[in-house]
Structures are given as structure tokens and as C-alpha cells.
Design a protein around this nucleic acid. Sequence first.
RNA 1: GCCUGUAUGGUGGAAUUGGUAGACACGAUGGACUCAAAAUCCAUUGGUAGCAAUACUGUGUCGGUUCGAGUCCGACUACAGGCACCA
Length: 948
Amino acid sequence: MYDYKTIEQKWQKYWQENETFKTDVWDFSKPKYYVLDMFPYPSGVGLHAGHVEGYTATDIVSRMKRMQGYNVLHPMGYDSFGLPAEQYAVQTGNHPSGFTEKNIKYFSEQLNTLGFDYDWSKMISTSDPKYYKWTQWIFKELYKDGYAKYIDMPVNWCEELGTVLSNDEVIDGKSERGGYPVIRKKMKQLCIDQPKFAERLLEGLNEIDWPESTKEMQAHWIGKSIGAHVKFKIDNHDLDFTVFTTRPDTLYGATYCVLAPEHEYVDIITTPDKKEEVLEYKKVCASKSDLERTELNKDKTGVFTGAYAINPVNDTKIPIYISDYVLASYGTGAIMAVPAHDERDYEFAKKFNIPIIQVLAKNFIGSGSSEVRSDKPMTERRVVNAIIKHPTEDKYLCVNNKKYNWIDFVMGGIEGKETPIEAAKREITEETGYTDFADLREMEFIYYDTFYAAHKDVNRHITCYTVVGKLKSLEQIAISKEEQDIADIKWIDKENLIDTLTNEAHKYSFSLLMKGEGAYTDDGTHINSDILNGLNKEEAINKMVAWLEERGLGSKKINYKFREWIFARQRYWGEPVPIVHLENGEDILLEDKELPLVLPELKDYKGHNGKAPLENAVEWKTYVTENGIKGVRETSTMPGSAGSSWYYLRYIDPNNDKEFCNQELAKHWLPVDLYMGGPEHAVGHLMYSRIWNNYLYDKGLSPVKEPFKKLVHQGMILGENGIKMGKRYPEFAIDPKDIAASYGADTLRLYEMFMGPIEDSKPWSSKGVEGAKKFVDRVWRFFTNMENITDNNDGSLDKAYHTMVKKVTNDFETLGFNTAISQFMVFVNVCYKTMKCPKVYAEGFIKMLSCVTPHLGEEIWEMYGHNNTIAYEPWPTYDEEKLVDDEVNIAISVNGKLRNTIKVALNTEEEVLKDLALKDEKVTKYLEGKEIVKTIIVPNKIINIVVK
RNA sequence: GCCUGUAUGGUGGAAUUGGUAGACACGAUGGACUCAAAAUCCAUUGGUAGCAAUACUGUGUCGGUUCGAGUCCGACUACAGGCACCA
């Protein structure tokens, strides 16, 4: 039996003593491969199953690459600034570094227990002054170049935690930690100007091999939208305000404007009679957190200011409202509202009874019931169609055109000065004889269609109004013989209507009626828009922007959702910011030689009255320049993501005290070839890292535009029942150390890799672990029994072995570990069938398997008489010729149904195959009395006989 | 509401460009070994009917393309993750 405890310890000790996995970064003789795991926060809880999954995956890849002759860099370190250490310090009065170091030690022990091939000589820890010296240094560069600066801006302030929180630390308006309420407050903040990077970050997404969903999330987060600024004059004031809109082409439909409640003009323009109401509304908004604002999302609120703006395209006076659906922080904090074509504006306009002007009409041209005939003239027509409900049943009035077999709503032209409703009544009575109408009204939207009207022999371009209503009774008058001949009356069920109707436009009108009318936000043809009439969306936008620019009323403008990254926290356990605020109001940076600026020891690590804990460090805080000017240090510290934004560079050259990373080394080792980590960092860490790298690249300090070439997210490991194990930390809480102790590290690694695709979430199964253990034992029993291992090769395992080598090599490359392992199992099953295996094959198998189960691999390798580590042995190769049998199974199907399989020689000619198939007893049964229409033959695969 | 995924046996999951659905494993059942159990080895295992050969059926639902669809197209449903008044 495999004694994993002794053997695993033996090899862990061996690797450590022999520095087996130490990477000589200056060895450029071999191609490089840089595999990186997202480094963990060293919590006292230690590793969880999710860590093990990701780390094992990269471990396997790094081991394979090493065997394939690459110089592999596979480092590990710790993102060691964080709240648990801070809280420990607050509670105990001890410096957090001791606590952190203890946890790091515990974590590292756990990692070693699992047999990972980390080069511990490259270990870094973000809270180590030797490391954060360079975090501070990069920050200084950002500050010098104007990317980091102080600006006055609204922030998420948490009273209970006494700190400013970043957007991703706020969940549903509550603090991520503790769930305390968070309010918005304006404060002077140290920020990093992220929007300056927006365009490059978007472009960079095209050149990296990342999961689509993650790239999309980042693009969405950056939130680029192309639109225009439009200037609105305020009536009776010598003032104007600017709005941002993506749809300047709908300006003719702008029937009101909205300012954010916080907008600077609100107090100026509000008329005296509205003052009280406006003030009250502003107060309500200010006291609301973001959570409450979004909760009230369903219902639009707002107040009229009493003031009017002038629509620049037609000089119409339109009311100015304030409402919290307009955010002060996006765009200009003011919008023009086009209720006909924006859902929010529509909702608001309905509630406040503001006019809705349609300026875009859906265009069915080309989808009409018949084609347009190019040889016939085009005529314009206004028409109406009528959606009329049955008086008692859930059915709608349709007419069936006998000649063409169309079924449509009653439809007809609008004559002279008729309103659409009058026209509808007349048409219905003419065509059906019904006269007794109720609740007739016009639907809000008109549309266009074009078709060839056979009865008049012309093409028709129609502007179509829709009238809806019902019949009060089925009272009927006689209709003309002519009408009777044309069409029959049909009452169609609501459910079948869409399928029954012939006309696309009628279908659309009906579905609109069913789901409720609302803003029309698709493309269409401009109407009611003077200079834009007849144009489509794109043409109209261009024309309108040009028109505005000519008159100085607006311009093209690109906007981003992406905002400044607030780069300061009122916490102790983070990198001190190397800035001093001088008495004379000047802010200065520390000199390079003053770095690292180290965190001081404190008696009290708690911040008081919302102040930063470093305010307690009276002596440390005080600063006097060489010229004798007094000042105080910045007492905020950097946010958690500062140190992790560049750590992949430091691993390459972790002990360099002259620069953050030797440039020659960086050039050789970057980018990271494979980066593995959880999807929860999609827009946090992975965005910040790209920003810092982007900046360093511009400065010539990073050799690559994008730091992480290929990114893979490992999925979540769920509890046995498939349920997440708690909200905050959803990973299934197993202590890998326990599992490693009771089953062995190799088994745990094998199991987690066999569970399923690396990126999927999958439930833990203790039965599955047993299964993995069974396989490890099975391998041990067979391959350590020398009676099974032969010196000569009789070729009986050729196919099984070479297939395995090919499959496993490909699968490891593409991170398909579950299928690679099943291929190992297939090979072992074949070995058990023959009860012998040539030594060369056994060694090849063990080499590959050693990536997953390194201890087992090393031990068997040693038993085979080797006195070196298996880690640098050349990767097995396969022979394509050995993969194919000289016989293949061919499926014979009749009309696509499998009827028999036959065994024939490889590459048997098609004619021969056909003969065999047609003679086959099981097949002929299905051919009797049928005519063979066709025979499809795919060589070495399948024959399909089509019969009639 | 929007975006992105996913949907295959009792379970986790396999299936090149469309070409024999269910690899591999877990579980279950039976057998060998054992005084017995565990471990191990061997066999069977999608469903329905049948002693059986075999037949029919089967990849979330409905429809389409095709000689042939888990795979491609269209509509829908459910679940998971993300975003959420972004003008």
C-alpha cells in the first residue's frame, strides 16, 4: 500500500534541500515561461479548496513546461495588507506585522504540504517595506506625471468604519465588510485619473487571450459612449447649461430637461413659488444612500423648477425639472429628455403629463406583404389599421383576403381631413359592417411600410397610424357585395394572433399593445424633425452634430462611466502615501532616498472621529523641509489594490534595491504567459494592474502593453449538496491540510483536477476523493510491481500509450485536466488487462502523471533506478503512426438511424464499403421494398443509406 | 430590466470541422477471494417492452437547416454569475 505520509514528506524535504524549483532568471539560454497565480491574502483561516484548484492547475502547467525545456518562473507571494490584520491591531494594540508574518508562515506551510513547485526565493509580501518602497516609488511617478492628484469629489463615506470606501467595497449601499450604511459626501480626495487610460484599456482588450465575459465586464465598466454635448439657454436668465446625449438626432423630440438635484444651477433658476418644493426634494435626495435611490428605481420622482430651457433647434420653451434619475456624477449632470425614445424619460413624462413627440418611426420598408415593383410608380398614403377586440371574448377582429389568403387587421386609407379614429371607424364598418365601438384610441407610435398594391397597380409608401379599441356589441349593418367578395371576417384568439397575421407591421403593433406601449428605442426614420426628416439614426446624428457645431451650440463628445480611482483610505495597515502637506499650502513628494516611508509603531491603531489612524502618530506626522518649512505627512494610506497592481514585475527581480525590476529581466520575462485566479477580480485587481502597467509601459518601464497574455478563472468549489457555503466566502470550507493528511496531497490534487472543467463551478464530493485515492493506489500497485514492468516492448501497448501522450499533452496545454486524467485512467485500465507494461512506457506515463501527483511520480521514478528528480526529465513524445489501428469500425445507418457497425481494414475504398453495407443482413432488412435514393460515405467513419 | 454563461444517465462529467451520444469516474447490482468484513480483482449498469435476439425511445422546450444535429440557425424556459436610472 502506498504510504503517502512518509513519501510526500520525503520529497517535499528533497525539493527544499536541493532547491529543485529555484529559477535562474538570468538564464536566457532556454525559452521562458511565466506562470502566475493571483497571490492570496494570508488570512488566518488558511487555504480553501478553491485556492488548491487554481494552484494545482498552474503547478501542472509549470511542471510540464519545465519538462518541455522551458525556463519556468512560478512564484508565490502574499497580498498582505488588509483589514483582518488591521482589526487585530486595533483590538490587541499589537503591530499587525507579527500577525501577518505568522499567517504567511502558516499559509506557506500549507502550500508546501500540497507539493507545489514554487520558487520560494522569489517570495514577496506587499506589506514588507522592501516591497512597498517601490509601490510608493511608482505612486510618486504617477503623481509627478499628474495621474495621481487631489480633487474634490463625492465619495462613499462609511461613518461606522470611519473611512472612505471604493465603489467595489460598497455592496447595495452597504459596506462590504460589516454591512454598515454608506452615504455620499464631498471630500478632497487623492485620486488616480483612470479615465485618462480608458481608451487604451479598451484597445488592449483586443489583444489579450482572456475569457470573453471578463473582457466584456471590463469594457462595460469603462462604459464608453459616443454622443454630443448640447447647450441649452435658460429662459429669462443669462445662463446656459450643457447636456450630454448619445442621441442628438432626437433633439426635436426633447420636451423637457432634467438637472441632477445637486446641479449648481438648481438654486439659481428655481422660481420663488417652487423654492420650497425643490428644497424639500433636494433634502430627501441628499439623505438617501445609493441603495435607497436604486430601490426607489421603480417609480420616477422629481420636481418642476418653474424655469424653462430653450430647445436650440426650434426655440421651444421646455420645462426644467430636477430628478434623482439624473446623476450628478455622470456626463454633465443634466439631460435633455426625449420621452418618445427613452424609457426613463417616457416613464417620467407619463407621470408628469409632459408632451411626448415621436421623432423616429419604425420602418417596415422591405418587409411588407408583397414586394415593391420597380416598374411601378410610388404613391404616398396615410393609413390606419385597427386592433379591435371582441365584445365578450379574448379575440381580435381580422379580415381574410380571399385572393391572396392574407389575414390582417382591418386597414385602410385616411381620407382628407379625417382623424385616424374616424378613418378606422369608417373602414371597419365598410369592411365588416360593425358599428358599435367603444374605447377607441390612437396608439402612441406610427410606423412606415412600403409595398406593391395590386388592386391599384402602384407601389405604396404608407405612414401608418394604429387605432385600438373594442366592439360594444356585434351589431352589424349590411356590407357591399364587392367587400364581401374581397374578404371574410375572422375572430382570432389572442394566443394565435401573432402566428396568424401575415403583415409584419401588424404583428409588431399587436405585440407592442400586449407588452404595453413605451419608448421606441430602435433605429427608424426621422419624422417631425425638420432638417432630419427621412434620415436614419446614423445619418441624422451626423447631420445634427454638424448643425450644432456650426452654430456653436454643441459638439461631438465621448463619455465614460469610468471615474477617478480614490486612492486613499483612512486605515493604518496600508502603504503610507509619500506626500507632505506644507504649512504654505504646498504639497510635496518625498525624495527617493526617503523611501520607504515606513509605518510607525503606534499605541493605538484605531482612527478616532473618522480620522485616519496615522493621525495618532504625532511625531511621525510632523515634517520639516531642509528650508525649515513645517508640514504634516499625508495620513491616509493606499488602498488594498495598490501593491497587487504591479507585483508580477517584482517577482522577476524581488531583491533589487536599485530599481523595482531590472529592465533587462523584465524584457525577457514579461508578459505573464498564464495567469490564473478567481473571476471576482475581473474589474478590480485586473483593471488596476492593467492601468499601472499601461502607465509604466508609457514611461518605458514595462516592456509590454498588457501584462497578462492569457487569463483563466478557476470556478468555485461548492459544498457537497451543490450549495454555496455562505455569501461572503462562497468557497467550500475544507482545510486542504486535513484532506492532505487523510488522503495525501497527491490524491487531493488529482481529485480537484478530475472534478470537471477548471472554469466551472462544481460541488465537492467526498466519494470522489475516495475514487481519486483508489486511482493513486492502483497506479502504485501496478507500477511498483517490477513483475509488471518489462524491458522489451512487444507493441501491445503502443496505441494506448501514444494516444495517451498525445491527449495528455494537448489537454494540459489547454487546461483540460479532467480529460487528461481520464486518459491516464484508460491507460492504466489497459495495463491491468495485459498485466505488463514496457519500462519506457511506464516511465513516460509516470513523468506525465508526476505533474498532477508529483510525490508519487518522484518515488516511482526513484524506484526505477534514477537518482535525480523527475522534474527536469524530458517530456514524452508520441508517434502519430502508432495512433491508428489497421482496422476501423464503421457505422452503417439507414435514413440517419444507426443499424449496424462493421469492422473493416483502414482506408477501405468507398465502393467496397458500399457493397459491404448493402449486403449486410441487419441493413438489408431495412432496405426491402424501398428505393435507394442516395448513399453517403465518410471514409473510416460512417455510411448513410437514404431510402424512400 | 440589461449583459454573459450553462442545461447531456441516479451523480460529477466525455464527445475534432455536424458523422456510432453517455468516454472516465462515483454510486448501484452481481460474481471471485475471505470464517467474515474491509481492501482488491472481474462483470453489468440511460429509459421502456421482452427470457432473449431485438425494437422503440433518449442530450431543458418548440420549430428550422441537413442524407445525418448534443453540436448550426430561430423562438422560448430554467438556473448561475455580473451590471443596474450611465442619458
